Amino acid sequence: MTVTFEHVTLGQRVLFGAGKAAAHLSAEVGRLGAGRVMVIAGSSEAPLVEKLCAGIDVVLYYNDVAPHVPVGKAEKARAAALAHGIDLVVCVGGGSTTGLAKAIALTTHLPIIAVPTTYAGSEATNVWGLTEASRKTTGVDDHVLPVSVIYDAELTLSLPAGLSVASGLNALAHCIDSMWAPRADPINQALAAEGIRALAGGLPLIKHNPQDLAGREQALYGAYLSAVAFASAGSGMHHKICHVLGGAYNMPHAETHAVVLPHVLAYNAPFAPDAERRIAAALGTADAVAGLEALRSVLAAPTALKDHGLAEAAIPQAVELILPAIPGSNPRPVSAMELEHLLRAAYVGTTPAAPSMPRKESSHA
């Protein structure tokens, strides 16, 4: 059998090491020759940022950050960067902080150094997202890819176990979606499989002992692999669902991904047997759906969208918004009825099960 594919690897410098973030940041700022640095971080990260930035000169500390990057906040941050003559943006935090840095880079082309404190993975992708009038728009642009990423597991120690689990399952969703996303290929599938293995090993250690640095290092490593796979493979059905829910209903990013993931896996797995076997093997189980549920049980993962702000009355509208965005390459055809059934199951929090084959009349709309 002949193997044919086209793969693109994004160029990025990655520095990984516990307790080394401050030294790595100082070295990277020097390497890039930056003289006017803007640091983006939420106000809760202020003590961490003070230590992290002790070795660099910061012109502007910026903390007006919000989930899903509202357009108004993006424009305000861009204006601040221009007003202060910024030549480098450093973002410290999770996906919201990285997203705002990307919004600045999208129009200014300023370089970014990302210092993640969660497992969101946005730091390793060239994907941006902005929300306006309750609709989230995403795109791809190499200018938003951080030039450097500094990973330090010690910076994640303050992330509570519950948020660590949700954030880690968001990373796991990057891996699983990459198995059948529009540009899936043997390379990003291999990265995704290793990411699943690392996350499945690290997250239970964090749940058992939130101060377990080895578990957090594994999860951080897995999160990076998941993001690289996702950046290469593109957005599959899972991410299209979650992007719409997050933007339209202001739902928390990580928890939404954590709840939706098992339902999409159960929906697609019977129609992607090779991917299902790889996912199962990475989880160390014979069945991918059962393996994910076992992991989620150990982690006491979020289970229901109703617990995170989705109103049941919004589900029909959500179906209308999501259906056109689902890739035609999804392993299983998707109809409005099937999508609504999936969302209602995720809303209530029922345990997903692998479905029967779809009826002949089902079609992607």
Rank of each mutant, 00 (worst) to 15 (best):
M1F: 06
V3H: 11
V3F: 11
F5V: 10
V8N: 11
V8E: 13
L15S: 12
L25D: 05
A27V: 02
L32S: 02
G33C: 06
A34M: 04
A34G: 00
R36P: 02
V37C: 02
V37H: 01
V39N: 01
G42L: 05
G42E: 14
S43E: 15
E45Y: 12
P47S: 03
E50N: 10
K51R: 15
L52Q: 08
A54F: 02
V58E: 00
V58K: 03
V59Q: 08
A66P: 05
P67A: 11
P70A: 09
A80G: 13
A81I: 13
A81E: 06
G85K: 07
L88D: 06
L88S: 08
V89C: 05
G93W: 06
G95C: 06
T98H: 14
T98E: 13
G99H: 06
G99L: 06
A103M: 09
I104A: 04
T107G: 08
T118A: 03
T118M: 04
A124Y: 15
W128Q: 02
L130P: 00
T137C: 01
T137F: 08
D141Y: 11
I150G: 12
Y151M: 02
L157A: 09
L163V: 04
S164V: 10
V165E: 05
S178D: 07
A181D: 12
Q189C: 14
L191Q: 10
E194W: 02
L199Q: 00
L199M: 07
L199A: 01
L199E: 02
L203A: 07
H208N: 13
D212W: 12
E217D: 12
Q218K: 14
Q218I: 03
Y221H: 13
Y221E: 05
L225H: 04
A227W: 10
F230R: 09
A233Y: 13
G234I: 06
C242D: 14
C242L: 09
C242F: 09
V244Y: 04
G246A: 12
G246E: 11
N250Y: 01
T256M: 09
A258G: 08
F271A: 15
R277Y: 05
A280R: 12
L283G: 09
A288E: 05
A294S: 14
A300Y: 00
H308R: 15
L310Q: 10
Q317E: 15
Q317L: 12
A318K: 10
P324G: 06
A325Q: 14
P327H: 13
S329H: 09
P331C: 14
R332T: 12
R332E: 09
A336I: 01
L339A: 03
L342V: 09
L343A: 04
L343Y: 07
A345W: 00
T351E: 13
P352T: 00
M357P: 02
P358I: 04
E361V: 14
